[in-house]
């Protein structure tokens, strides 16, 4: 090995930068992990929530059914009420999320008098078929999400949100 492959100055530069970098990383890393924690947190998915909607009263016409659950938002716990559009399709009960797949506004059944058999989003005139399928040529890029449904003592229960399976 030749004498001066690495000069004393280079060696000191590398070791000091390395040690300094290690110490700086030890200082900054906990803070970065602390900051990005929300991205890495996993949330437990909720159970079925009982509504006051009698299953026997559900018809072919979509109705808005409210359901309330306790939401844990970091240190803030609150009761949050959300809604689903519920109707019967044959024997099957369909519960669709009212959240528009365009930019998250709330859709209404027959909100547009020109399209009485469709869901309508007033923000950017997005439309969906009854089964949640988005109408081509309107802003939404996908079908409305659906909720899992169940029945308890004749009342409707609403479960977790899943991608639309009807369209």
């Amino acid at each position: 090995m030749s004498n001066n492959r690495v000069t004393r100055r280079q060696f000191l530069n590398y070791t000091l930068t390395g040690v300094g970098g290690f110490m700086a990383a030890g200082m900054v890393l906990p803070m970065v992990r602390f900051a990005i924690d929300p991205v890495l947190q996993t949330k437990a998915e909720g159970d079925f929530i009982l509504t006051s909607q009698k299953v026997a009263d559900i018809t072919e016409e979509p109705v808005s059914v409210n359901f309330t659950f306790e939401q844990v938002d970091a240190w803030y716990k609150s009761d949050v009420t959300e809604a689903a559009w519920v109707y019967k399709s044959g024997d099957q009960i369909v519960a669709l999320s009212p959240v528009c797949k365009h930019l998250g506004c709330t859709v209404n059944w027959a909100g547009d008098s020109e399209h009485p058999e469709q869901f309508f989003c007033p923000c950017h005139l997005g439309r969906y078929e009854k089964n949640g399928q988005n109408v081509a040529g309107t802003p939404p890029l996908g079908p409305l999400d659906q909720y899992e449904v169940a029945e308890k003592d004749g009342f409707l229960m609403i479960g977790k949100k899943i991608p639309n399976t009807f369209s």
Binding site: P30, F34, D37, A74, W75
Partner: peptide, 17 residues
């Protein structure tokens, strides 16, 4: 107080920061 409790006990490395 709740937010301090949360960041110390629920957030990763909160105790350290």
């Amino acid at each position: 107080w709740k937010s301090v409790y949360y960041l110390q006990n629920e957030v990763a490395f909160g105790e350290i920061v």
